[in-house]
Amino acid sequence: MAIKDLPKDEYLLKGNAACPGCPASQALRVVLKALGQNTTMVVPACCTAVIQGIYPKSAFNVPLMNIAFEAAAACASGIKAGYKAQGNDDTNVLVWAGDGGSYDIGFQALSGAAERGTDMIFICYNNQMYSNTGVQRSGATPYGASTTTTWTGKLEHNKDLSEIMIAHHIPYVASACVSYPEDLYAKVQKAKSIRGFKFIEILAPCPPGWRFPMESMVEQGRLAVESGMWALYEVENDKMTFTGPSKGILEGLRQRKPVVEYMKAQGRFSHLFKPGNEGKMKIIEQHLDVVWDRYRKQSSCLK
């Protein structure tokens, strides 16, 4: 899949209210290109609820429903049931939630819908914090990252929602990143072709939240993958395959870039470079080794 093969259609219209350099709007463009016009979106409280624009205008060229933080997957289940009652079984129902709406607040509805196996795609665009409300810590915030509620750096490691979703034994779980649009497009297309509950997580480097210059948004995503801070993979019917640079890292064909290279451009990690914080840097590096060891074990089990 090359960039040239991606369709020209745009379902996220120009002149929306996203910040300049917003990874969510770039990911939305690619995701909606893959899903096409026959899609209904459910958006809980998150940045995308702002990106939509102000009544009576909407920046989305597909039907979209706003719902409370904790109810996104439940609402989508209802929409799917409604379509089924109308005899329409081919409209894609897409939940587009942030990490707050899937890792933390929206988790029970997400887990419930996955357990019921409702036919929908749940996409979590993960910017590793509550950026819409002013950069508070979330369950996805990595160790050491500074947010407005963890001034001196978070002291806990992030949880891994994709692995929790793998444990739901749903037909398709994938992890993607905005910097690899072809990979993301292919994963959404695959999810579209599968019946049942599909979960995709997209890393979204947020310039104001992570505090880096907006033009390096795509570069930051790429560095996250190349340094091993983020992995690209998909799990289809309990078969795990890594894609892109993560495949090389897993197989040992490619060295992980030093994690310092990923962190140095981001203001949220700047305190780790001050004297006295060398220990924290070490904890992050050791954690990465543990994570990749786990990936290796997992991928050899899920063959």
Binding site: L13, K14, G15, I54, Y55, K57, S58, A59
Partner: peptide, 16 residues
């Protein structure tokens, strides 16, 4: 309160 798809839902954002 149904919003309709419109280009420039947040205005002419080129001015930002």
């Amino acid at each position: 309160t149904i919003s309709r798809p419109t280009e420039g839902a947040a205005g002419k954002t080129g001015s930002w």
